[in-house]
Amino acid sequence: MHKLLGIVILLLVVNCKSTENKAKMVKEDVILIGKGDLYGSGSEGIEQQNLVITSESEWKELLTKIDSVNKVSDSFSETQIDFSKYGIIAVFDAVKNSGGHSLSLVFQETKDKFLVEVLRKSPDGIATSVMTQPYYIVKIPIQNVPVVFK
């Protein structure tokens, strides 16, 4: 599967006549699939991590984990992804001992990388006493530059 992705990326690079003609990704190109909290107290088995998902099998594996305690993916805007055109960026924070935590992402594209800045927010004041794990999942057009998390 990685060879196929490499071939697709190579074809995209070869077909580009100039990086000057390359359209920059705009905010509208990033499509929110889902954000919020997992409430399984960590029993989903998802560690704090930043993922770039490029295949159907990786995506299905993640959906299975996400839905192992609660059907979280039922609230997603979509779960059927065309991986020949799109990739998934999924960010999971650590399991927290209270509610009120959240994630947001900021995207910036340069000529040599696609930068994803992960912003974490903690609750102000008193928060609910429930274990949560914030997540943020988006769909982006396939990149021909590396995705770098900040």
Rank of each mutant, 00 (worst) to 15 (best):
F114A: 00
F114G: 00
F107P: 02
R120K: 14
K113R: 10
K139P: 02
G99A: 05
K113H: 07
N144L: 10
V118I: 15
L119F: 10
G99C: 04
S122N: 07
G125N: 03
L119G: 00
S129N: 06
K139M: 07
K121C: 02
S122M: 01
S102T: 15
L103Q: 11
L103A: 08
S104D: 13
A127C: 03
M131G: 02
E109I: 11
I142R: 15
K113L: 09
G125L: 00
P123T: 01
F114I: 01
Q108D: 11
V130F: 07
I142Y: 09
E117C: 00
D112P: 01
F114Y: 02
I137S: 05
L103E: 10
Q133I: 12
V116M: 02
V145L: 09
V118E: 08
V145M: 11
V118Q: 06
H101S: 11
V138S: 09
F107K: 12
I126T: 12
S122V: 08
K111R: 13
V116C: 00
Q143K: 14
A127M: 04
L115E: 12
M131N: 12
E109W: 03
S122T: 12
Y136S: 10
K113M: 11
Q143H: 11
P134L: 07
V116L: 01
V138F: 11
P141S: 05
S129C: 01
Q143T: 14
P146D: 13
T132G: 05
G125R: 05
V116Y: 13
Y136E: 11
Q133R: 13
K121G: 01
T110F: 07
Q108F: 00
G125H: 04
T110E: 14
P123D: 01
V106Y: 03
L103Y: 09
G125V: 02
T132P: 13
Q133L: 07
S122Y: 03
V118D: 08
M131T: 10
I142V: 14
Y136L: 06
V118M: 06
F107R: 13
S102N: 14
V130Q: 06
M131W: 13
P123C: 01
N144A: 05
S104P: 08
I126M: 08
S102P: 15
E117H: 03
P141A: 05
S102W: 09
I142T: 12
F114T: 00
L115T: 11
Q133C: 09
T132F: 03
V118L: 05
Y136P: 15
Q108K: 09
N144F: 15
Q133K: 12
K111V: 10
D112R: 05
S129P: 00
K139E: 03
L105F: 13
G99L: 04
S102G: 13
V118S: 07
Q133H: 12
I140A: 07
P146S: 06
Y135E: 03
N144M: 14
I137V: 15
I142E: 07
I126R: 11
Q108N: 10
S102K: 12
T128R: 04
Y136V: 09
Q108Y: 00
S102Y: 12
V138N: 11
L103F: 10
I140Q: 06
I140F: 13
V130K: 04
S102E: 14
Q108R: 03
L105G: 07
